[in-house]
């Protein structure tokens, strides 16, 4: 990896100061994404995966704030920028795709108006050129009859078509990075496949880096190059998708894989991970996963493991540390 990564996050920490003390939502999160690469970020609800995406975009809801670490976009530090400076980064250098295409478009403006607005804000084109570009974008994301559809309002599109419009909006200024937060969760399965294929294609065509946040391992398996698994606000495993699926390093990842039904495989019973993820204000000492871990050791209850090389990726587990350093 000699290139500068598009996104380089180091030891990111997000805190929510509250009446009963400060809650740490993200701690020590480090990952990077190369040009043209799709990094899948998985985890249960509340593991902090969406939070990581919002923190990168500077869109945390106050009082939440980035309290440590650094975020670099193409080598340039962006976590220290003011909100006004971030407005020029968001949409222009980082495109966003949200979960629910039904609610992420303003119902009172036509998709063309919203596209033209974004294009003109970031590229400073005149109205006519911007409109031509809007139509080109709609064509690119596979919307039929784009020159007619450009003047339609969001409610005149189906869910899948709306998500395509959202993707067109994310692409409007040819960003280096797209952060897609559960882009397929609100769609039905056949549309899901189309949308992930579209993302994959755009990524390959333009060398865009994608941070794909989802709880759906199936989507990750089909789309992503590498995967980062999150648990209780920390990364527990990072590695190439095929490796992580075939040979999970962390017991939590192994548990996640065991809970996915495989088509055609005869599995009498899916395994499940007992218990639930701890609340962020009550994370146990040592490894956060230790109360649910089937392979827990004494050391796990006292000392917190950091991400360390393991298999062909990294994992945060003492078990692997013992194997690699005998």
């Amino acid at each position: 990896m000699t290139q500068t990564p598009i996104l380089d996050v180091k030891a990111l920490r997000v805190e929510f100061p509250g009446r009963h003390g400060t809650v740490t939502a993200l701690a020590d999160v480090s990952f990077s994404i190369q040009p043209g690469e799709i990094l899948g970020v998985v985890g249960e609800s509340g593991a902090g995966k969406s939070m990581a995406g919002l923190a990168v975009q500077g869109l945390l809801e106050p009082p939440g704030r980035v309290s440590g670490g650094e975020v670099r976009l193409d080598g340039r530090r962006i976590d220290t920028l003011t909100d006004g400076e971030m407005e020029k980064v968001r949409g222009k250098e980082i495109g966003a795709i949200f979960q629910d295409p039904l609610t992420s478009l303003n119902p009172l403006f036509s998709v063309g108006q919203q596209l033209v607005e974004t294009i003109r804000l970031h590229l400073g084109l005149d109205r006519k050129t911007a409109r031509a570009r809007a139509i080109a974008l709609l064509t690119e994301v596979g919307i039929p009859a784009p020159d007619v559809r450009v003047d339609h309002y969001p409610h005149q599109f189906s869910g899948g078509m709306r998500q395509r419009v959202v993707i067109a909006l994310a692409l409007a200024a040819r960003p280096k990075l797209i952060i897609a937060d559960e882009p397929t969760t609100a769609l039905d399965v056949s549309i899901q496949a189309q949308i992930t294929a579209l993302l994959r294609k755009l990524c390959d065509d333009h060398g865009t880096a994608v941070m794909l946040v989802t709880h759906d391992m199936g989507v990750i398996a089909e789309t992503a190059d590498r995967v980062a698994v999150m648990y209780a606000g920390r990364l527990v495993e990072v590695g190439p998708v095929a490796e992580v699926i075939a040979n999970p390093q962390h017991p939590y990842t192994a548990g996640l894989m065991g809970s996915i039904p495989a088509l055609g495989a005869r599995v009498p019973m899916l395994t499940q991970i007992d218990g639930s993820m701890p609340r962020l204000d009550a994370i146990p000492a040592g490894c956060a996963f230790n109360p649910r871990c089937p392979k827990v050791m004494d050391r796990c209850r006292v000392e917190r493991p950091e991400l360390m090389p393991s298999g062909s990726g990294q994992s945060a587990c003492w078990l692997k540390a013992m194997e690699t350093t005998p």
Partner: peptide, 23 residues
């Protein structure tokens, strides 16, 4: 959501308030 998405598109704050939200 669409206000948050507008912010993610980089629409300036005043424009969000007086155009997207007010309408």
């Amino acid at each position: 959501d669409f206000i948050k998405f507008a912010r993610a598109r980089g629409v300036p704050r005043w424009r969000i308030q007086f155009r997207h939200a007010l309408k």
